[in-house]
């Protein structure tokens, strides 16, 4: 039986004209996207408000351009959003200081448009941070990993690449990639165990 809240089903609903389904699909990926964007930024730029801002902008563009997205596999929406995030970050650097938002063209729900999608974050600027603590802890642990280990975990665990895809992206053999991921997780576990009270 098709799980009605799988990403695929939600996207199908979104295409059938249910804007809430798209909100739900994006909401599912929100935290992963935040973690990815966090590490796409330079260490100086990695503060909560900026990350949150970029997540928001990325999702807004996602809303606008959802027609161009083609579903391939369970991870493909996140990968697509991740590539949008790359553009958003580049644009942000290029137009620094100028406030240009794609979101203004998206017909969000409002008094004049009651059927539009719910703004991704209507309640608080950070529903993401309802479990902020858990994310913060995760970031703290990832920070303590060497760069290649961290990238391995980000690619496989956060972005959702398979080890073969990761091998391809990093120019390694699958065996090497598997070993890298294994060691990365092992180290991550050690850090976790060490930081556990």
């Amino acid at each position: 039986m098709e799980n009605p809240t799988s990403t695929f089903a939600l996207l199908e609903h979104a295409r059938a004209g249910d804007p809430q389904a798209l909100s739900a699909a994006f909401e599912k990926h929100r935290r992963r996207l935040a973690v990815l964007i966090h590490y796409k930024l330079s260490p100086q730029a990695r503060h909560g408000a900026e990350v949150e801002d970029l997540v928001q902008e990325t999702l807004l563009r996602g809303f606008r351009d959802i027609g161009r997205f083609h579903y391939q596999s369970p991870g493909s929406l996140l990968r697509w959003l991740s590539s949008i995030a790359d553009h958003v970050i580049v644009d942000r650097l290029r137009y620094q200081g100028r406030d240009r938002r794609a979101g203004q063209q998206v017909p969000f729900r409002s008094a004049s448009n009651p059927n539009g999608p719910e703004p991704t974050d209507s309640a608080t600027p950070s529903r993401l941070f309802a479990q902020q603590e858990a994310v913060e802890r995760l970031l703290a642990r990832l920070d303590r990993l060497p760069e290649d280990y961290r990238q391995a975990i980000l690619m496989t665990k956060i972005e959702g690449l398979s080890t073969a895809e990761m091998a391809q992206r990093t120019g390694r053999s699958r065996e090497a990639a598997a070993l890298l991921v294994y060691r990365a997780v092992k180290r991550f576990r050690a850090i976790s165990d060490a930081s556990e009270p």
Partner: peptide, 15 residues
């Protein structure tokens, strides 16, 4: 242990 660590990561990022 490693699989437990993976679940930790999932719980942190997956609502």
């Amino acid at each position: 242990g490693e699989l437990e660590a993976l679940s930790d990561i999932d719980r942190a990022v997956d609502p």
